[in-house]
Structures are given as C-alpha cells and as structure tokens.
Amino acid sequence: MGDIIKLGLFLMLVAAVAGLGVGYVNIMAAPLIEKQILEEKIRSFKEVYPEGDNVKNETAKYLGVPDPILKEVNISYRSGIPVGVIYLAQTKGYSGAITILAGFDLVSGKIIAVKVLIQTETPGLGAKAKEPAFQNRYKEKDSVTELEVSKTPPTRENQIQAITASTITSKAVTKGVNAAREHFVATFGAAKQK
C-alpha cells in the first residue's frame, strides 16, 4: 500500500514538473504563434486579392445561415470603399478537408486568384494543388458561369484542367470555388451593374 502511494506521488511529481515546463513554454510561445497565424492569413489575403488596403471579416453580415462549404466572407476595402470579396471555403478532398481562399473583384466580377491554404492530399499527386501551376488556372475566370474540371487541356473559358491523376482533388478545389462564385453572384451581382 505504502509503495503504491510512493510511486503515485513520484509520477505526480514528474507530471507536475513536466506540466510546469510545458506551461512556461506555452505562455512564452502562444502570443508569438497567434501572431504568426494572423500574419500568414493576412499574407494569404494579399495573395488572392492584392488591391485592398484593409480586410474585414464580415461573415455574420453576408452568411446568415451556416453554409456547408463557405466558412468566411471577408470584404477587402481600399480607402474605405469595398473593392473585393475573399471567401474561405472548405471541401472534402481525396484524403481529408481542403481549405481554400478565393478572391473576387467587385468591379469586374472576375475571380482574381485562388489559393489552397490547408490540404492533406497525397504528396506528389493531389498535393500539387497548392502549387501556383494549378492555382493559376483559376485566375481571371468569370464569376457568372459555373467552372468545370476537364481532364484534357481546356477548350472552353469555364474549364479548369485537372491535376494529372488527381481528379478528386481538382474537383474538390473547384467545388469550393464554385460555392464562393455562386454566393458572390447572388450577393454582390447587383453591385456590378451600377
């Protein structure tokens, strides 16, 4: 009996010291980590919509009911005037969730750029979705027509060529972009005409 208490106390002591160590490191590192994540997000915003000088998260205003794909609606402002919309969308890829950012221009109604933020696709195959070579295929596409994935070099303006041997990944990214595109046209389509 005495042994059990002694061993238990020893383990408690080890865990307490370890806990203190981890806690101390966490207190030191947590604010820095938070800053990194925020900076990374701002950098990504700049990549998909470089024009604005201030980005505001207005998900609550534009996304009344929770959407299965769209997670965030961010409005990009330049000198206080809204100029672009940046969507954060999440779809299911080949081996897990794919999170993408899609930037739309309010004046031209075009897709400015698409960026894959988080993915766990097969390295060498689906993971190629995060490379510019694939992401650039969405640049300057019109927001009115639905985008399609094609396995051969595109013949129509609304076609996106799939990554070789990774059609599921390509379709998942396109699905996210299409959801953003539909919401953009439905919500901001009127703004385009004036």
Partner: peptide, 14 residues
Amino acid sequence: ASFVTMTDQLMHAF
C-alpha cells in the same frame, strides 16, 4: 511527450 510539445511550440513560435 513534454519535450515533443515544447519542441512543437518553440518551433512554431521562433
């Protein structure tokens, strides 16, 4: 496990 957690956090921060 403590060392791994610390390494993870320190690398993420610095």
